[in-house]
Design a protein around this nucleic acid. Structure first.
Lengths: 226, 226
DNA sequence: TCCCCGATTCACGCCATCTTCACGAACGCA
DNA sequence: TGCGTTCGTGAAGATGGCGTGAATCGGGGA
């Protein structure tokens, strides 16, 4: 689960943003001024920081500068319309995106997802190899022990998502959200069917899966070891 | 790291554009009039120039003319709507693309990437051969099993883009952007029609395509292997 | 100005894929 | 071991993506 630190001196904003992020499956932390933000970075090691530009004690700009001295954690800035010049400075200092106040929490969530996704695409290879399983991302080709396997779009996305994070357990709802955008009014057990179909296609013995493991009472995960 | 020179007399624009480009991993330089631009070219040897049309001392047109006297560096022009005539002159003089003010910095960044990528590709091969299909890049001639095929400009660009990257899957939006420059509100399924027409022209059996393959739920790709 | 060609948009029918559902099997706790 | 819960599965139905022909748009040339 990805960890987001929200930094703003307006408690109400922090509260709202956190609520939305938590609701989307992120773990969140709060900081209410620049000093807390820097402590929070050291202590929590968040995967992304949502940072207000106007902060007591240390300004957002200053905080960004100090963060960048030691870390590449992605930063999304919250700015008021009037602070355009500062926004530019923020980008120069290495903020990854910004959102103008007043913003809709949904938009912020979308940006957070976008930045994290962009990052993790750019960081990672073009091929995932896990034992006999190979996933070629650019061509969306999958082979098992060299033999090509035909997957539907959803199957491919699901497999790729899990195989990127071996060992990590996801609930059906999390997987649903990953795989079919974020519509939460669907039937979680749809995932079961995709798993069945995936197993049929990639598991030598679908009854005793080597790759796609069930975690009873929780969800699924891709095998850790091999 | 690629080097971009930004030329505009409005400091604010230069500042914003540089921030965005830097943020995307480019190294940037600034010039605030035509003379500085020419000095900058000699001094910094940039990989691409973003050039405003309206400049003090030397106009953008004049600057372009002088640059082209000695260099093939790609140029992207910034123009106001009203300067349409000049834009045409600019393109005739060898600008590689233009962006109309007011523009979104993101769009400009996209154009920069596109021009650099295009360049990069054109420097490689002069002919693409894939099975019976031959694409002559300089003359834009296409033959299938030796028989010449008439393609429209868009069809040619689309086919070439895909054939350069066999196996790689692209969404309709990616293809649209490639083929018709950057447009934010177009209809992705336009690509379907181009595909249909292309298939009609180059596929022996358009119903069972050998070259241009559909990836259901994702987009299209040129066949890998054969 | 009109004409023509190519690009774009649109509507519709078909079919791959996704979703839902029901029921029996497997699991895990006491 | 017994029982409630969760999971696997096959099949049926709903969804939505794709191919296509045809209408419309738009720009360049006669």
């Amino acid at each position: 689960m990805q960890r987001i630190m929200v930094v703003d001196d307006e408690k109400k904003i922090v509260q709202t943003v956190r609520a939305y992020l938590e609701n989307e499956g992120f773990k969140t932390y709060a900081a209410y001024d620049g000093e807390e933000a820097l402590r929070g970075l050291a202590e929590w090691d968040p995967d992304l920081i949502v940072l207000d530009l106007m902060l007591p004690k240390l300004s957002g700009i200053e905080v960004t500068k100090r963060i960048r001295a030691s870390s590449n954690v992605p930063i999304i800035m919250l700015t008021a319309k009037a602070e355009e010049a500062d926004r530019v400075v923020g980008l120069e200092l290495g903020a990854d995106d910004y959102v103008v106040k007043p913003f809709s929490p949904r938009e912020l969530v979308a940006r957070v997802r976008a930045v994290l996704r962009r990052l993790d695409e750019s960081e990672e290879a073009e091929r995932i190899t896990r034992g006999d399983l190979e996933i070629e991302l650019k061509t969306r080709e999958v082979t098992i022990a060299g033999r090509p396997v035909e997957l539907t779009p959803t199957e491919f996305d699901l497999l790729t998502f899990l195989a990127r994070r071996p060992g990590q357990v996801f609930t059906r709802l999390q997987l649903l959200r990953e795989v079919q955008g974020y519509t939460y009014d669907s039937f979680a057990r749809t995932i079961d069917t995709h798993m069945k179909n995936l197993r049929r296609k990639i598991e030598p013995d679908p009854k005793g899966p080597r790759y796609l493991l069930t975690v009873h009472g929780v969800g699924y995960r891709f095998t850790r070891g091999h």
